[in-house]
Amino acid sequence: MDVEVLGPFLVPLSSALAAFGFLPLARRAGFVDHPNARKQHGMPVPLIGGVVVFVGLIMAGLTTGLWRGEGWGWFLAAAVVLTAIGTLDDIFDLSARWRFLWQGITVALACAASGVYIETLGALFGGGAVMLAGLAGLGFTVLCALACINAYNMIDGIDGQAGGVTLLTLAGVAILSAAAGHNGTGLFAALACLALLTYLMFNLEIPLLRGWKMFLGDGGSTLLGFLVLWLVVAGSQRDGSFPPIVAVWLVGVPILDMLAVFARRLLRGRSPFSADRTHIHHLLLDRGLHPRQALIMVMAMHGAMVAFGVAGTLAGWSELTLTLGTFVAAAFYFSLSFLLGRPRLPVAERL
């Protein structure tokens, strides 16, 4: 039997076995996230979600044969290092400066060695393609990687959110890659969705998994951010499965939320990296939504962006149309974010 046929079975199985194996070990070792003023879970939760997803990704690469060529080995090596950096941050609370430095070096080496980096931004304005030569393209890719990695870290604020938005992004990549005939990338993205679904069942504690809750941790969210970055760059640059501007639609809410939060903090004279409760999920929760309702709202917004990018690509819309659409989506998101962030007036004043 072809090993690719077993992929849809082996990937979730390997992730589930990793979950059942590592979760008790994490509890005994104290590798858990403790509740505090900004974290509202009731008891310590193991931070092994990234390991569960990573094991599934390794199996996905084995069953598709991607680890043997096309630069995917460099992705795997960089993913190991980046996940380790995130895990060390979970344990020792690394400074942002050192974390960004080692993330940037790792991404730069992997992209330079594999040739998977941004060389063109496409015909953003309807004319000729905007090209990025050599080091400019590599430097821009590293900048995008740091933004993506940390955006997915920041969006990991309520159960199911980081994994859910990544799931939607990978589904979009899988559809576009398969439609363009790049079945290897498409199958890998689809199998990665199964690894994420396995993690989400534990994270959201479906009825059969009560008491087996886990979080991604910084190691896991770092892995997801890099996975998304690699797939959208490979899909838009090396494979040509979709125009580069579509990557913005596929990444969607995590990037827009990060930019909105940074803007709000800077306008208040604070560091963009200072901690607060101004992410979209915090704003929705502060408006009285239940965490599951907030999750559905964020997933709906992100899903709409992914669907627009996929539909526009398959329908053959111009890159100019897709570019202009990103400004409309950003304006809508920023307006919604700032409106939700406005202080609520007392009932008497509203009357």
Rank of each mutant, 00 (worst) to 15 (best):
F226N: 00
I206H: 05
A263P: 04
A147G: 14
T326Q: 04
A189R: 00
A180P: 03
A151H: 11
V116N: 08
V233C: 06
S318Q: 04
F9P: 05
V251E: 00
M214E: 04
D159T: 12
L88K: 13
S271Y: 08
S271H: 03
L229Y: 15
H41L: 08
A110G: 08
A29V: 10
V45T: 14
S271I: 11
V80H: 14
L176H: 02
V142L: 15
V55S: 06
E349Y: 07
G309F: 02
L256S: 02
F75L: 09
F100K: 10
M301V: 14
I280S: 12
P44Y: 07
T278L: 10
A178T: 05
V130R: 11
A136G: 10
T323D: 08
T321P: 03
R68D: 10
A195I: 09
A110F: 01
Y117Q: 02
A96H: 06
E205V: 12
I105L: 15
D90I: 01
S15K: 09
V306E: 07
L109H: 06
G163P: 06
R238K: 12
R265A: 06
A307F: 06
A151N: 03
A190M: 03
T141M: 09
L231P: 11
F75K: 08
H302I: 07
I158L: 12
G219F: 12
L320C: 07
A37W: 10
P244Q: 04
L187Y: 09
V11N: 08
L196S: 06
W102Q: 10
L121I: 04
V232P: 00
P12V: 05
F20I: 10
G303M: 13
G157S: 01
V107S: 00
R38Q: 09
L88H: 10
G160D: 03
M299T: 04
T166N: 14
D33I: 02
L109Y: 14
E319T: 07
L82R: 07
P8S: 08
V130G: 03
L229F: 15
R38M: 07
A300W: 05
A192Y: 02
I280V: 10
E4F: 14
V52W: 07
L283K: 12
V253G: 01
Y333A: 03
V5Q: 08
F308R: 10
N203W: 07
A179Y: 08
D33M: 12
A300H: 00
G325K: 14
A136Y: 09
S337E: 02
F100S: 10
A348L: 09
L267F: 09
L132E: 01
